[in-house]
Nucleic acid binder design. Structure first.
Lengths: 212, 212
DNA sequence: GGTAATATATGAACAAATTCACAAATTTAT
DNA sequence: ATAAATTTGTGAATTTGTTCATATATTACC
């Protein structure tokens, strides 16, 4: 059962965490786990874990708990990370290059197929086996290779325009590291804004209010 | 009034977003804004914006709205990004180097004062004016310079140990890019887990369920 | 094979977050 | 100066999310 209809975003946020912890357990050779045990490891209540998983179907078994490998597979299916989405990365600056080389795209439902930048000087440089291409080649490349996802590591000022052309080229999902808030303008497209700056400011708040 | 006591995390999450949008408006020369206007730009309800801000005090004026520069300052104070926290970055791999060079730490309440890695080969390389130091020099450096924040761009397997030593060296806040879940183990320390992999999996889910 | 222990699934109770609605204050227009 | 139009701040209503409690199923053990 993998039929999500009106699942709360808060539940979705927790799914990758479950997936990660189950992967670790599996790597340790653990085969089964109860919601109570998992709750201790993961720092949530057992009740919430059961409630979350039940949004998608009854994956557990009374008296036994959850079969880890199977549950992890189910969550992987729900997240849709089994068949990879073809992705292009736009902006091969510091951050773009780091994302390209650092991320394990394959294990998270994506396959990076092209890297683009507007700087002529970067053209041809190889990252993770892919040559940096000039941004002018993006249109042709997309028409030929049909990526569904774009990773935006570009300045805010360029984001709106590039995002628009990408939508016309059939891009359905954006992983957005630019400081531009895509969600606001294109609700019909899947967007995941990262906003590292916001995260850093939240840390500042937490440090400041450490004794509350 | 900047006295946060039992403020919900959801409110805190929105503060940087307010701060960002107010900064943009200010840059455009706008001086005042109503919660209704802001709500349209930012994609939240006006009511929620008023409710959020009122957690910290009445910054608006009936009939007028909010004075942008003043409100932004107030939020900056609440977030504590005015006096910078000294920070060290651990792990000068692809991601660490990108974070060091890419992030505008100063405008977000931090000052990067040291970069460390365990690889001898990287030692001495300059990033953003700072030399990469060997991880063995971390103890001395901390005792001398008293950083309060550490940015972890290291593999999961090293995170637990380094995190522990850093806590003993007086580190109060962690900006964690490793795949290790710090929150689970040290609730008394301020932690902001980034988990880019989780974000990518969420995007996968959103792409898969684009028509719901 | 039967009994005790375990653990899920699920509906109900509770808690938290968001939205609504309006009085009070201020601005703007005349 | 007065009236009309804005717009906040705030308590109440509503919605959403989390936790509790238990019937039901399964396993483990004697």
């Amino acid at each position: 059962m993998t039929n999500p209809q009106g699942i709360s975003e808060l539940v979705i946020n927790r799914l990758p965490r479950y997936y990660r912890f189950l992967g670790e357990l599996l790597a340790q050779g653990v085969q089964r786990i109860s919601s109570r045990e998992l709750s201790e490891k993961i720092g949530l209540t057992a009740s919430q874990i059961r409630q979350d998983l039940n949004c998608f179907g009854g994956f557990g078994q009374q008296g036994y708990g959850y079969h880890i490998a199977q549950l992890r597979d189910e969550i992987g299916n729900i997240l849709g990370i089994n068949k990879p989405n073809k992705a292009v990365l736009i902006g091969a600056g510091n951050l773009g290059r780091a994302i390209a080389s650092h991320m394990a795209f394959e294990s998270k439902g994506f396959k990076l197929i092209g890297i683009f930048d507007k700087k002529e000087a970067l053209k041809g440089q190889i990252i993770k086996g892919l040559p940096i291409r000039h941004i002018d080649d993006l249109d042709d490349f997309c028409r030929e290779n049909l990526p569904v996802c774009a990773i935006l590591c570009i300045p805010q000022k360029d984001a709106y325009e590039i995002c628009n052309s990408l939508i016309h080229l059939g891009i359905k999902g954006f992983w957005n590291f630019s400081h531009y808030d895509l969600t606001v303008n294109h609700p019909e497209i899947a967007v995941e804004n990262v906003h590292l700056g916001d995260s850093l400011m939240k840390l500042s708040y937490k440090i400041k209010n450490i004794n509350d």
